[in-house]
């Protein structure tokens, strides 16, 4: 088996907490505790969990915005852990992050073209005309009119804003994308087109996705492998079809049962007869 492109070993992250001197000592929260993950080139790994499970903190730590307290992060087999934040961020340039709230991540006073070109400028692309050329080509690649470079964020719909924020990140030529709830708050009809775009871009730009989500029905369709996170730990990982067909951990089963399905209403304990039977079968298996 090939070497994973990104490897996380026993990662722990503590958040908050303060030393007590003339005031109360507050112990830090272990937001991520002892997490190990492998991300292989070209795959989509979904990180699933409820709010407060530590999935966003894990994403931010892999990205280098949050320092790890223990453990190792290997990018292409080389350790990039234990560095100060700015050095860490440079070492992990191949990893980029797509924000959950696309609208909030864009400057309302800058037109889209300027916002997108800024990343290229920071990367040292001096020629303004060449920058604009790249921006227009990338807007076309994500399915937007190149002319929309002149427009402002408020002129776009929710689905279009997701495309803009994807274009901005793709201009930086990442190899690994961390997608934080890329479809939350979108209509079902728009959600489908955004997911389609993600699959298409992965092929075209040879990307690897770490897909953070709590929407199980989307995860089931989109991802190759799934890691279920609960209270800072990964409780179950496996191929998506295996995990969804035969969830092993009780928390995974609880999550699966809570997802709204078109098959209709369930009894008050949250399980339909069919589901109870399949869970029973899973227990015996």
């Amino acid at each position: 088996m090939r070497e994973p492109i990104l490897s996380v070993r026993d990662l722990s992250v503590l958040l908050g907490g303060r030393r007590g001197f003339l005031r109360k000592t507050v112990l830090p929260t272990k937001a991520v505790s002892g997490v190990s993950l492998d991300l292989h080139e070209g795959e989509i790994l979904a990180l699933v969990g409820e709010s407060g499970s530590g999935k966003t903190t894990l994403g931010r730590t892999i990205l280098g915005l949050q320092r790890e307290n223990a453990g190792d992060i290997l990018l292409d087999g080389k350790s990039v852990a234990g560095l100060p934040p700015d050095v860490a961020r440079r070492a992990r340039n191949a990893i980029q992050y797509v924000h959950q709230d696309a609208g909030a991540a864009l400057d309302p006073w800058w037109n889209i073209g300027r916002t997108l070109a800024e990343g290229l400028l920071i990367q040292g692309m001096k020629d303004a005309a060449a920058r604009m050329e790249r921006v227009r080509a990338m807007l076309a690649a994500v399915g937007l009119d190149p002319e929309s470079a002149r427009r402002y964020p408020h002129e776009f719909s929710g689905g279009q804003l997701r495309r803009v924020s994807l274009a901005r990140i793709l201009l930086l030529q990442p190899r690994i994308l961390i997608l934080d709830e890329p479809t939350s708050g979108l209509d079902m009809s728009v959600q489908a087109t955004v997911l389609n775009l993600l699959l298409d871009l992965r092929k075209r730009f040879a990307l690897t996705y770490l897909f953070i989500s709590h929407d199980l029905s989307v995860v089931e369709r989109l991802s190759d492998r799934v890691a279920i996170m609960h209270l800072g730990k990964i409780v179950e990982t496996g191929f998506a079809r295996d995990v969804f067909a035969r969830p092993l951990h009780s928390y995974t089963r609880e999550l699966l049962n809570a997802a709204p399905r078109l098959t209709g209403r369930r009894t008050s304990d949250g399980l339909s007869a069919v589901q109870t039977a399949s869970v029973g079968a899973a227990r015996r298996a």
Partner: peptide
């Protein structure tokens, strides 16, 4: 849910991951 009649209802239902074969959208 058993027999959606209007094309819009059918298209919306087809967007639900439980019913979609691929991500088509409307």
């Amino acid at each position: 849910l058993e027999a959606p009649s209007h094309p819009y209802t059918r298209a919306l239902l087809a967007c639900h991951p439980d019913r979609a074969d691929s991500f088509v959208g409307i």
